[in-house]
Nucleic acid binder design. Structure first.
Lengths: 125, 125
DNA sequence: TTGACATATTCCCATATAAGTATGTATTGT
DNA sequence: ACAATACATACTTATATGGGAATATGTCAA
């Protein structure tokens, strides 16, 4: 099975850096395609295609105005992402606290737990 | 140019539903691969491959224990995602407020706010 | 040492890009 | 009506999957 389509959901859609760039650019104001092209320095067809993907997953909305099309980020569609990320925020705090505790423990005269690496091998990469 | 590698960053790595599932599963506790396999119902090689991707972008950490490998979500690596999503949270509120204001304006002065759905369309899935 | 057990890695292949180029389609000005 | 403007879509191609099958690697137990 191949990779899931970029239009399958918001997660796949924002995997592309250019699309994230467009979303951020459109978050402030409605913009027409030409402005986006000028702003992010990509050719018009590419921008249109990215906008097409974003449209299909409802990450942007469009409005016609004469021969222009005004795009705007639909912040609501980012919600699933936000919730996913937020789920880990608690653990993020936990881990921070643990690190902090370890640091403090090491300073204490008794030194209770010399080695307790949370992540033994910093995933090389 | 083809799509960016799933190992290029966290955004690409989490585009895969199975990997999000694994991340959520590993968020609570350290788990060995066999447990993950049993939990998400995917064959072992596939799970290992997903874990490999998550490892490369540092979304999970590993620890060896005998013949087992204990994986755990590295919540810190979710940060970029969280920040990206959070950027839109303000606009999300804005949009909600606008919708709310418009709704209220259209309504009779009495009946203040009968329905106020936080998520207009329950983010399916 | 040998075998069982737990994971990782390699190979194969149908599929989905993303960028570039070319072309199609509305809509407006004159 | 006609040309220009603003976008969208079609086509081509190099590339990266993700799952299944088979195999390799590493560790423990007898």
């Amino acid at each position: 099975m191949a990779r899931a389509a970029t239009t399958s959901d918001a997660f796949n859609a924002i995997a592309e850096p250019r699309r994230r760039q467009i979303l951020l650019y459109l978050a402030h104001d409605e913009r027409q395609v030409g402005e986006i092209v000028a702003a992010i320095g990509l050719d018009q067809p590419s921008v249109s295609k990215h906008l097409g993907v974003l449209r299909r997953v409802n990450l942007v909305g469009v409005r016609r105005n004469g021969r222009h099309r005004l795009y705007r980020t639909n912040a609501a569609a980012i919600r699933p992402l936000h919730e996913f990320a937020e789920t880990f925020e608690r653990y993020w705090q936990h881990q921070l606290n643990r690190v902090k505790e370890r640091a403090e423990a090491q300073m204490s005269p008794i030194k209770p737990n010399p080695t307790n690496p949370i992540y033994p091998k910093p995933p090389s990469r």
